[in-house]
Amino acid sequence: MKNKTNQSTLIAIVFTIFSLISTLALGDEKGIAIAKETDRRDLGWGASTVNLKMLLRNSNGETSERQIRISSLERSEKGLGDLSLTIFDTPGDVKGTAFLSHTKVFKPDDQWLYLPALKRVKRISSKNKSGPFMGSEFAYEDLLSFEVEKYKYKYLKDESCITAKSKCFLMERIPVYENSGYTRQLVWIDHAHYRVNKVDYYDRRNALLKTLVFSNFKKFKNRYWRALTLEMTNHQTKKSTLLTFSKYDFEVKLNKNNFKPNKLKRIR
């Protein structure tokens, strides 16, 4: 009898430890719940194509523009992120260059680059998560698809949103994937639709580095919200990058065969 009590106490202790560990691993319950709900509401979008204009502004206000087209395909298998193909239309010297990414949640992504002048498809290293994308204020990791398991979460408080009309959850998330350039991020997510409204990025020294603001939200397929305007401001260099999305198409028919490295040679 005594033994049995001991056993059940032991089980209870072990159980508590396990649940503590799992809570510690992903953060507090409310934080995780918000992250999961954000993720859940964006499941099932399928495939999309979109045009993107990037406007790079330096500290003197001088600007430089890039035109890009992106095709994406959602993958629902566990551990696999989305497939994406990015084609550059301007500036002239990179026209026709294409970047193919097979993203994964925990393992390094598989990435290929197509160099049209040489007709060469080149597998590249995907370690460089914190490096700038096309000389902009966006790092590669800022543009990757959101996966719940990539962060630990801590719900902080409710605050009014910067772009949406409703209240926002303010929470902290800490990247747990390798090679991130950030110690933590503060994220504002609106109550009404669980859309990310704003992110503050803190660098490796835990100083505020950048702020990203999402605006101009539009609903697609009656369900999926996309911000058509994203503005990233770097507080340390005073540079900024404005992304404007247009011609979103969620009806496009894409499958995984459209994202084969060898097919980069025939893209347009």
Binding site: P108, R123, I124, S125, K127, N128
Partner: peptide, 9 residues
Amino acid sequence: LQHTSESWL
């Protein structure tokens, strides 16, 4: 052949 892992090709 090319083997790609982390920052090594």
